[in-house]
Computed example of a mutant assay.
Amino acid sequence: MAPSVAEVLPSTAELKTKAEKLNRAYDAVQHASYKYAHYLPVYDETTTFPPTEPFEFADRGLLADKAKPHILGLNDPNVKVTKLTPRVGTEIAGLQLSELTDEQKNELALLIAERGVVVFRGQNFKDIGVERQKEFGRYFGRLHVHPVGAHVPTALEFHNIYLGPDNLYRAQLSSSRLSTTSFHSDVSFEHQPPGITLLTLLAVPSAGGDTTWTSQAVAYERLSPPIKTLLEGLRAEHSGFPQAESARRDGRFVRREPVRSEHPVVRVHPVTGQKALFVNPGFTKKIIGLKTEESDAILKLLFTHISQSADAQVRVKWDDETVSLWDNRVTAHTAISDYDVYNEEEGLRHGFRITTLGERPVGVGGLETVW
């Protein structure tokens, strides 16, 4: 049996040593005054990982009180809970993620499943240290290590989000596409793709740089009954190969060889039982068993539906005390790269993402992922 990710992860001390040698994404002098320089991106080019093996997963939402009295602060006047739109997105102020009890975390997992994304304001999460942040993430599931992305110097599990005037990979904004939006569900090509993702931003542009989430559950609900019936019996291929090939073309290190998975097109959430589309423009390549023209036509319909349904979306504005958590099983999301990345005063968007892996997707009637 191949070793697990946990068994091959370098120690914090080893990563610190590597970080000193491998950090090529920024100039130390330029960032000497940056408060969160210790979170700047580095690229470990030596650690490789075996293929991810199947593992047992139990969603914390199954343990939650369905009324969610503790996370919603029903008896706490200091907690303010706001629905951002009728169907997707909830904002919470007056609670610190770093101080949540297990009971509150269980209720949070359920709330994220129900609302798609939950946004916490006024957070100290960025200041509690990497080990406590890891501990918080692990409560919800096994931590994912991104196969090609930059990371935080002492934590390969923290996928670094960095786009600024000195970013080596800012060329993505010079693409030939009309729009920089790209809806996706995080690394959905994994055999057991992510459940909950947590993102905290440390630096944000003075304007712009928002994130939009779209509800895949609402997207499914709005389809006609004949289309629902068709999709419920289908699987689609999600592939990590284009991402790996792109990374290699850019000279970046691929720490785990890419995989493909055939996931149900309609996924059933293990806690809520809600049905949701599980395709996205970022990683879904074709529908299994259909002719090329049929697959292309259906995916084009679904991708347009996902991307253009503003009435099933929520757009969140960031500040450096905001943390957002979302359920990749029922949402897709995109960054909004509408700010001036070349402006040193206004163009830095920097943070880190902690992603937890979930269960092997199951569709309607028990239809399972295959690979």
Rank of each mutant, 00 (worst) to 15 (best):
L234I: 09
E294R: 12
E237I: 15
L230F: 15
S309K: 00
F278P: 11
L230Y: 10
E293N: 12
G233T: 14
H263D: 13
K286C: 07
Q243A: 08
G251R: 00
H305S: 11
A236S: 15
L301G: 09
E232I: 03
E237L: 14
E232P: 01
S295F: 04
Q274N: 11
L302E: 08
Q274A: 12
R248V: 00
F303R: 03
P281S: 03
H263T: 11
A247S: 04
T284D: 07
L231T: 13
H238F: 14
Q274T: 12
L234E: 06
T292H: 14
V254I: 05
T304H: 11
K300T: 14
F253I: 00
G282T: 02
I306Q: 11
S309G: 00
A276M: 11
E294F: 10
G233M: 03
P264I: 09
F303W: 05
I298K: 09
K228M: 02
E293K: 08
P264G: 10
P281M: 02
Q308M: 11
T272K: 01
P281K: 01
T292Q: 15
L230M: 14
I298T: 08
V279K: 08
H238A: 15
R256L: 06
H305P: 08
L290T: 06
F278D: 13
H305D: 09
E232Q: 07
A244V: 07
I306E: 09
R249D: 00
E294A: 15
A236R: 07
K228D: 02
Q243W: 01
R249V: 00
R256A: 10
A276C: 14
Q308S: 14
F278Q: 13
P264C: 10
I287T: 11
K300N: 13
F241R: 11
V259P: 00
L231Y: 09
